[in-house]
Design a protein around this nucleic acid. Sequence first.
DNA 1: TTTCCTGCAAAATCTTTGCATGATC
DNA 2: GATCATGCAAAGATTTTGCAGGAAA
Lengths: 164, 164
Amino acid sequence: MASSLQPLATSLSPQERFQEYLQAKGLRQTEQRKFLIDEVFNQHEHFDADELIERLPRRGSPNYVSSATVYRTLREFVDAGLLKSFQLEGRTVYEHDYGYPQHDHLYCTRCQELFEFTSDELIALRDRVAADQGFRVTGHRLIIQGICQKCSQTRRKKRKQDLV
Amino acid sequence: MASSLQPLATSLSPQERFQEYLQAKGLRQTEQRKFLIDEVFNQHEHFDADELIERLPRRGSPNYVSSATVYRTLREFVDAGLLKSFQLEGRTVYEHDYGYPQHDHLYCTRCQELFEFTSDELIALRDRVAADQGFRVTGHRLIIQGICQKCSQTRRKKRKQDLV
DNA sequence: TTTCCTGCAAAATCTTTGCATGATC
DNA sequence: GATCATGCAAAGATTTTGCAGGAAA
């Protein structure tokens, strides 16, 4: 819901791409890995390890995956280029990377939602700044904090009511 | 060493400014707070709680400050507007805010050093993006990752030697 | 059948908190 | 003297790891 970007055309699904990664590394295709990649690419929202674990089957249910395996697998997804991760208020937040354009974020500090945007201008600016300092760029992370439109409106309404 | 920015002119020292903050909030001026503010503003490098604790006197020595107090005091410094904090690879990194211009960072993933830069253009871009989405901006954080000039050179030399 | 993977529990980090004692206003 | 701050230890929160049993190739 917070996304306004279009997916990129990809020749392989995330599942297929992960298979290739596993084969290239001599790793195995397990039930847990298959299940997790489906879960993770089933939706596009940002999430952290805990949120993912919360919506997975509980211990004892079919398809249960232990937390340790979730953490291990999320790291593999990042290594495989399927997910990106970044830090936000102490949590490690994951988002789709494969099949999704490079982008940055607006973060609403009231509702905690992340909104995406792209800016070629930002990339140009970044490269110029880096070149100035003799830096070889490998990436960047920009998060703009503030209050989103919806939250601003909510607050405004509440204030009017308070005055009544 | 990683800084190329000039301090701003300030009418109060960080110490004085913190005194005002404490008085305004009805808090107390303790030995620990005085000692810590001197330690923290004694140098300009970025640091995390652990690095600060490491260079403070050990338990039993004069001026010993417990870790709990260090954590509590760092939060007060941030509240007081003396320090800013941000997340970098899981750590909470602190830097001087009071008396120092708004800036962003280049981060060398090889030597882990942070370099600072300012860009009015970035601010303009940020405000434009936010306005587009109806966001009310309160701040931002940009970190450009890459390899710094020195590390690039080191690596290049090593490669030549490897060929000999 | 060899190697890798998983689940479990324990450990490792980093940070916060409850509480009794002690310092500051 | 009243209140706030500190130190200590314990608890939280999050993530990693050692290990034994189990699964994939």
